[in-house]
Simulated assay, not measured.
Amino acid sequence: MSRVTEAEVAEAAVKVLTDRASGRATIKELVEEIPNYLTLSAEDLAPSQTRQGEALWEQQVRNITSHKASPGNAIYEGKLVAIPGGLALPGSEVAA
């Protein structure tokens, strides 16, 4: 099994947020929940060489925000919105 893509991680994040009444989550909450929505390979679970204490796939969660100005990115495409410390579904950026 090969590594998941940033797009697949973003799609799983959308699913996590859709299942939340608030439509919002911190990066930590997403990291905890995404494995329930996405099958991760041994390669995905390997330690990141650039972020100590983090698996490679976890870095992809943060990359969603880092790459927000790139076509194809979930934020760029309007599927997700960056909020302080996390992500939200469009329209859920402001806490209720």
Rank of each mutant, 00 (worst) to 15 (best):
12 A>E: 01
4 V>R: 08
5 T>H: 00
96 A>C: 10
12 A>C: 01
32 E>P: 00
20 R>I: 01
13 A>S: 09
26 T>I: 04
35 P>S: 05
88 A>V: 12
71 P>S: 14
61 V>R: 03
58 E>H: 11
7 A>Q: 05
6 E>W: 03
93 E>M: 11
7 A>F: 01
20 R>N: 01
22 S>L: 06
60 Q>H: 14
76 Y>A: 14
17 L>M: 01
48 S>H: 09
11 E>Y: 04
25 A>K: 00
69 A>E: 14
6 E>M: 09
57 W>G: 03
26 T>D: 05
34 I>N: 00
89 L>N: 10
75 I>D: 12
58 E>D: 06
30 L>N: 01
66 S>D: 11
10 A>I: 03
35 P>I: 04
72 G>M: 10
53 G>E: 10
45 L>V: 03
26 T>K: 01
40 L>F: 08
77 E>N: 15
80 L>I: 11
4 V>Y: 03
15 K>N: 09
55 A>E: 14
40 L>H: 04
69 A>S: 15
4 V>N: 01
75 I>Y: 15
7 A>S: 09
84 P>R: 10
96 A>R: 12
66 S>R: 15
77 E>K: 04
70 S>M: 15
6 E>Y: 02
2 S>I: 08
64 I>Y: 06
67 H>C: 12
19 D>K: 12
33 E>M: 07
7 A>L: 07
9 V>E: 00
76 Y>G: 09
90 P>C: 12
18 T>Y: 02
24 R>G: 06
46 A>H: 09
61 V>N: 09
17 L>Q: 02
42 A>W: 00
95 A>W: 11
45 L>T: 04
26 T>M: 03
95 A>K: 13
26 T>A: 08
84 P>D: 13
51 R>S: 10
73 N>Y: 13
44 D>H: 01
10 A>Y: 00
40 L>V: 06
49 Q>A: 14
41 S>D: 05
61 V>H: 07
66 S>L: 14
88 A>C: 11
65 T>F: 05
52 Q>F: 07
26 T>G: 11
2 S>Y: 04
16 V>I: 02
65 T>G: 15
1 M>L: 08
17 L>T: 00
